[in-house]
Amino acid sequence: MQDHKISFTGTEDYIASKELQNSVNVAVALGRPLLIKGEPGTGKTMLAQSIADGLGKKLLIWNIKSTTKAKDGLYIYDTVQRLYDSQFGDHDVSDIRHYIKMGRLGEAFLASVQVVLLIDEIDKADLEFPNDLLWELDVMNFNIPETGETVHARHRPIVVITSNAEKELPDAFLRRCIFHYIAFPDAAMMSDIIAVHYPDLEQKLLDEALAAFYWLRGIGSLQKKPSTSELLDWVQALTVGGISPEQIGEELPFLGVLLKKDHDFTTVLQRLHNEGAQAKPASRFPHLR
């Protein structure tokens, strides 16, 4: 049985830590949903895409909003359409099946091959939402009372669930998941990530940018810490702007790309001013070299 084991090792454009790969493989092997948490910008949503690419499967995305109900993911019975049709009598309204549309989970169940299903930002929905999905994710089937049909999963989809911890998830739901917390990447991993996006980046520029970035993140009083995606934008801005590596630590050019709040802006500029030019971020973090 070991021979059939599929194993996820990350993809070219997505660097996954060894631990994360492990968690993905455990979840796939056990057929359990994989719950992913982590700081914004650590690539939670991207992971599902990467799993799909890495394992050569199709990805279905179910975006959760505050109004999403668990039933929406299974199927939608379009009563209003049926009502309208009945008023004009130009459609056959006697067959309810015409008005049943599959939701994302339903689609994943009915797919002819195994798919990866991403339930994105599950914590946005109502508190009871995850509990309402327990049965369907456990036994992989659901019933449509309107037609009396039961939909069985042809292939158990690989379910990836992301959460931003806006709401606590119910214990019963958590018990059935494999959990992984994506820690914020350290400098070494971050340079790998940047290398994936900008392979031709000058080493010196990368070092300086990283040093400045982690120096910024180290400032405790920031309201919103810059994340990976902002760093990537910043690196691009630095290259396009033709900034020399020496300038980065001294001036922090294009700071607006990294910081999004007025308060943070003033804090950082003040810090920079106080600590003076003699202490460039890079030299404050010699261990990053």
Binding site: N22, F179, Y181
Partner: peptide
């Protein structure tokens, strides 16, 4: 090490319990 990561993924459901 494998057991450490496996156990954490399966048994621990919140980073606050890591």
């Amino acid at each position: 090490t494998g057991f450490y990561h496996l156990g954490r993924a399966v048994l621990v459901k919140s980073e606050t319990h890591y």
